[in-house]
Simulated assay, not measured.
Amino acid sequence: MAARSYPIDLGWLNGTVFAHRGLHNSGVPENSMAAFEAAIEAGYGIECDIQRARDGTAMVFHDWELERLTGETGPVAKRDAQSLGAIELRGGAGQTIPRLADVLKLVAGRVPLLIEVKSKRDHRVSAVCLAIRRTLEGYRGPHGVMSFDPRIACWFAVHSPETPRGLVVTEQDDTALPGRIRRRLAIRHAKPDFLAWDIRDLPSRLAAAQRRKGIPLTTWTVREPEQRATAERYADAPIAEGNGFG
């Protein structure tokens, strides 16, 4: 994998406060259209999660299984988009699982959008990446795609090089030498345009080194004022929820 051979404008990333899974609360479910509408009204960027439906549609949903967030059970990947779109989210009357296409139509470039792609080590990533790329075709608002899995960034580098690509990183419970080596190799392999770093790990020598190279650094999930202060000192953009908005 080669680094990007042409400059990309990520000025929209610096200083933006992103609402983690939208601006959700006890009456507004995470990753719902209502949460995204609230984030836009408040002037926040949006971070959302993507799962692939059985028919190849990019759906906005965090978990692999339906149980925590809905009254249904079973894997998201076993349902088609029509079925998933009819499932009501817990904690919000009338809010159902949205498609990425619906979210793009709602946002319409008004605020920046970070799209986190869920993956598993034993899964092929091409199917979900292709679903996202097809949905993003023609979208001109500021956006980026990111994942813990460096294969996601590599796929977009080859098949959708105009899409800003990011790597999500955590050092938690993996601070020994093998973990440090894995993180450096993941960054080298992914060649990300930006990074999304675990707030619990900041300040981080590795994150600071990447930032000195000119790679913008977002940080997640900022939930408290103290974490917000850390984010403002050591990162370029917080991904926040709850009390983390300051």
Rank of each mutant, 00 (worst) to 15 (best):
L10V: 04
R212N: 11
A86K: 13
R183Q: 09
A157I: 03
E116R: 08
V76T: 11
R228L: 14
F156Y: 06
A86V: 07
L114D: 06
A229I: 11
Q95F: 05
V222K: 14
K118D: 15
D102T: 11
D122Q: 15
D201A: 03
T57Y: 04
Y44G: 05
L185F: 07
P142C: 06
V60Y: 12
G166F: 09
H20F: 04
P112I: 09
L185Y: 02
G138T: 00
V28E: 11
G45H: 03
L100A: 09
V60A: 10
I40S: 00
T163P: 09
L100P: 03
L113P: 12
A186E: 08
A186S: 10
R223D: 12
R124E: 05
P225D: 07
E88P: 08
W155L: 03
P150H: 00
H123S: 13
G71M: 09
R90S: 12
G43S: 06
I152G: 07
A131D: 01
I199R: 11
Q51A: 00
C154S: 01
L202Y: 00
C129R: 12
V76Y: 01
T163D: 08
V111G: 11
L106V: 05
G141I: 08
W220R: 08
D122I: 10
V60L: 11
R54K: 14
R228N: 10
P178V: 09
F156N: 02
Q82Y: 04
H189W: 12
V117A: 07
Q172V: 03
R79L: 15
L106W: 06
E241G: 15
A3E: 14
Q172E: 09
H159I: 04
V145F: 12
T221C: 12
A196G: 15
D122P: 12
G45K: 05
C48K: 02
V117E: 03
L177V: 14
L114P: 13
G214I: 01
A39V: 09
R21G: 10
L217D: 12
G56I: 05
T218C: 15
M1H: 12
I152F: 06
E224N: 10
Q51M: 00
S119N: 13
D102C: 00
R79F: 15
T170V: 07
A81D: 07
P161Q: 09
E30N: 10
L114R: 15
A42C: 05
K105R: 04
A101E: 10
R151I: 05
G138C: 01
L217Y: 07
